[in-house]
Amino acid sequence: MRIAELIRKSTTSLLTAAIVFGSVTVFAQDETNEAPVKERPARAAFESGLLFDAATTTLQPSKTLEMIIQHRFGTMDNGVTDLFGIWAPSNIRLGLNYSILDNLTVGLGTTKFNKMQDIQIKYNVLQQTRSNKIPVTISLYEVIGIDGSADDKFGIEYKFSHRMSYFSQIIVSRRFNDMFSLQIAPGFTHYNSIDSTMDHERISISFAGRIKFSPQSSVIIGGDFPLQIQAISEHTKEFNDNAEKIKPNLSIGVEVATSTHAFHMYIASAQGILPQEDIMFNKNDFFKSGILIGLNITRLWNF
């Protein structure tokens, strides 16, 4: 528990420090007299800041508003009875992101399941350059979730803070060439209030990739792997071994991007949409009928 708390505080501190020192570094560079050779930033590794349920290192230029619609149908395991999940209860998220700076985006969203409200912040610490002097792009990503369910979901001694959940991630991506990009993202999830049989914290590792097969279309893949680490668990190893396992959220699909839109059509296993929901609660097994159809649409406006 102490280790988990330490990790959570470290991640939050790192995000704050990066934003503060990043800004200071910008001022410091302005004051130098020598004109450094201008490095050209590499083109974005992904077409959109969103890939399935995950964030990518792609940020839009400052003063850009992005509207996001994410839709997950139900799982396909009932077959034709509910038309492969299309008639089953679906989850939807509506979100708005705004780029305050070229490397800082904030967002708000609302999700149907658990009436989750979310506040998001993404900050680019490092940008891959075309010369490969900087080989990767690194972003820090934070999602604060507020569960809007009825008070009695949170136990007898209700406090507003019980509704809060946090997801922190360091995303490292590389655009290898015009066709192929990959990213890896270790993450940390914390819920202030959770079922007594579960842990409040979970460490995860996420992957995402894209293979472009035409100027506008790509095959996209992604995976969030929750890790069961005994050192941060609140329960005994024996208890954890017998508990129902949280499954990885795997996704595969197609992305079509235009100058103002990105469309994702795919199959995935988790229905939570917010990353902390997928990583903490997903019990759908991608390889055992636990898949569902997902759709994302993004729209950009520049000001």
Binding site: D178, S214, P215, Q216, T258, S259
Partner: peptide, 14 residues
């Protein structure tokens, strides 16, 4: 013929 063509197709073709 790589970047120029790709960006034309993404942004201008429609």
């Amino acid at each position: 013929n790589s970047t120029g063509k790709e960006l034309y197709n993404k942004n201008c073709k429609s």
